[in-house]
Computed example of a mutant assay.
Amino acid sequence: MTGYEPRWYREELHRTELSPFVVRFRETDLWVAVPPEKDTPALRRLCQVTAATLWQELHDYILTDPRFYHSLVPYLPRFGCPPVAARMAAAAEKAGVGPMAAVAGAFAEEIALVLARRFSLTDIIVENGGDIYLASTVPRRIAVWAGNSPLSGKIALDIAPDLSPLGICTSSATVGPSLSLGKADAVTILARDTATADAFATAVGNQVRTAADIESALVFAAEQPDILGCLIIIGDHLGAIGRIRLAPLADSVPINTAKKGCRPC
């Protein structure tokens, strides 16, 4: 697996009462935030081991089944594939894209669930290249980064606790290394499953080449039972459906600005 970029946005201030830390293994580079009393060496070690294990299992599987990595359409993995590969493939099947479109979201949620189970966490954020798994007992505000769009860094998503746990994933044709066949500056999807949110962000993003495509792409998103909300930004145009609640960022300092997508604030 390739495509790592330095997470330059993590030099910004993280505005959260949670305790954040970074975990890296090969191309996997995570920003994790947990309650301060839960931020222990044991939790960080488990996070590191889980990230490394997921990466190694998927890497080893791809060596035996390279079509899984290269396919841009749904692909059935081989029997005995690692669970994360099966989860990626299932999410991709729903969205009509290749399995690797779901990798960041799948990793974020798998790691978050392992930590939540082991350390009884009710609040946790795991961000993987702008794709977020969020479990929260309090309202959260997620700022939206959309490259050179004049709306970039100016708006945020208000996430109510009743939406938690939630996947918040973004595809961009203008920011970051991820493949998009469209031209959108940001397509952000809310879904209960983070791998599914990731896959649909790619699927919807592929449909947006001009501002005129926003309406039809939103219609497509609204027809998908797995999508809770969809936000599309291209240039100075914006459209949203579902449980998207937008708020201005006012003059707050951007934090955790993802190479594509969203950041907790």
Rank of each mutant, 00 (worst) to 15 (best):
L218W: 05
I142E: 00
R117Q: 11
V114P: 01
R26P: 14
A95M: 12
N128P: 02
E5D: 14
C230P: 02
L134H: 08
I244D: 02
G242V: 05
F119N: 07
A211T: 06
V34E: 01
Y61G: 00
A221S: 15
S252E: 15
F21C: 01
I232S: 01
A201R: 07
A85K: 01
V97F: 04
T64I: 10
L30F: 09
N128W: 00
P264I: 12
A221I: 08
R26D: 09
T53H: 11
S171Q: 02
A211Y: 06
A143S: 08
T202R: 01
L43V: 08
I234S: 00
Q48V: 12
A52C: 11
G96R: 07
L18E: 06
K38V: 05
I142Y: 15
P264K: 01
C262K: 06
A85F: 07
A106Y: 00
D236H: 10
G229Q: 03
V253D: 14
E93R: 12
L63T: 09
A195T: 08
A106Q: 06
R243T: 03
R87A: 04
T137D: 11
A197E: 06
D131T: 09
T50A: 10
I227Y: 03
Q48F: 14
A106G: 10
P20A: 15
D198L: 06
K260R: 11
D198G: 00
G98C: 09
A85R: 01
S152H: 05
Y61I: 03
S164R: 03
A90E: 10
R87S: 07
A135T: 09
R141N: 10
E17N: 15
A221L: 13
I233M: 04
G98K: 04
L181C: 08
V73M: 14
I159F: 01
D193G: 10
L43I: 08
L76W: 05
V22P: 07
T2S: 13
W55R: 14
D185H: 00
S180I: 02
G182D: 05
G176Q: 01
D162E: 06
P161V: 14
G129Q: 08
Y9F: 13
P161N: 13
D65Q: 07
N256H: 11
H59A: 14
I168R: 01
S216P: 03
G80A: 05
Y4P: 05
P6H: 12
C47V: 13
A247V: 14
A90H: 00
P77Q: 05
E17Y: 13
D162C: 06
A33P: 08
G176A: 06
S149C: 07
K260A: 11
G129W: 08
A101Q: 05
G242S: 13
Q48L: 13
A86M: 09
E27C: 10
L190N: 01
N256D: 14
P139G: 04
R45P: 04
T28C: 06
R118P: 00
F79T: 08
G167R: 03
V97D: 08
R78W: 02
N256P: 00
